[in-house]
Design a protein around this nucleic acid. Structure first.
Lengths: 147, 147
DNA sequence: TTGCTCCTCACGTCACGTGAGGTGGC
DNA sequence: TTGCTCCTCACGTCACGTGAGGTGGC
């Protein structure tokens, strides 16, 4: 007997935590045909995600994180079905979305700087520390320049 | 006479590019009351975003990037209206969302690594380079471990 | 005159989220 | 027996996107 931890399958909660996709999202993806057939426990009807499905969800979750929508996920799955024959297209697809995500992360890092500086600004105001407030405002102006 | 470049106001397109919010989104935010009153050109009816409004949109856009929804944006605006009195809450709000965004960025960086390695994997397969394929797969397993 | 940007209004869409009501497993 | 997780199904929601049809500015 095996526990879920070492088993050949995973529960929906485990897959949700791993992938960052919510449980409703995993059911939704299955319903619209992104996951193929997901095995079930015969008695309970609970989903049992096997290794291949989990790997597929890994890929979909990473694409989703890059802002890819359902339509292009289907395009990806069509390439996947063609195997090594579609290797150049797979390379292109992954590289393209990696580049987009990379640019997106850079933007987010700038926004993060902004949020941190705003926190510092209000902290300075809370402490009535005029000098610190001026420093935060100067750094904010520099960040905003790069928007 | 001034050009838009050096003017005291900005067009919706300029604000859209700066903030990363779409033009429909800017109109939507105005409609639901997040922007207050946006000035208009008398003849054309075109929006003229003044400096204060642009700064407000900067803040909203950064919060949006951190995944903040409309409801909490309103909460933020209520704090803003209270001025320095609400400084501790402002500090807390910004710090909280900065922390969330920071964690989110870390996750995204992991997903980015995954996408890049997948691109390398398919590139190796395309070139029928078995050794490179094995290396990419090994590195992929290491990344997936951290999901 | 010709693009280009902008406008309003109505409706559509995408990707889920949220109960209600119920069943299995330790 | 009691939480806990999971199920289906129907509907709701959030945050916009998308035309249609039209007007102003260089």
């Amino acid at each position: 007997m095996t526990t879920a931890n070492e088993a050949a399958w995973a529960t929906i909660q485990q897959v949700s935590r791993r992938s960052g996709l919510s449980e409703p999202t995993l059911r939704y993806y299955e319903q619209i045909g992104l996951l193929g057939t997901v095995a079930r426990d015969e008695r309970s009807g609970h989903r049992r995600y096997d290794h291949a499905t989990v790997e597929r969800i890994d890929a979909l979750a990473c694409l989703r994180a890059a802002g890819v929508g359902v339509a292009e996920m289907r395009a990806y799955l069509r390439l996947l079905a063609r195997g090594d024959e579609a290797a150049p297209q797979q390379r292109e697809l992954y590289a393209r979305h990696a580049d987009r995500l990379s640019a997106q992360i850079e933007q987010l890092q700038l926004r993060l700087e902004y949020l941190r500086l705003k926190a510092q600004l209000w902290d300075a105001r809370d402490r009535a520390d005029g000098a610190a407030e001026q420093r935060a405002m100067a750094r904010l102006r520099a960040v905003v320049e790069r928007f």
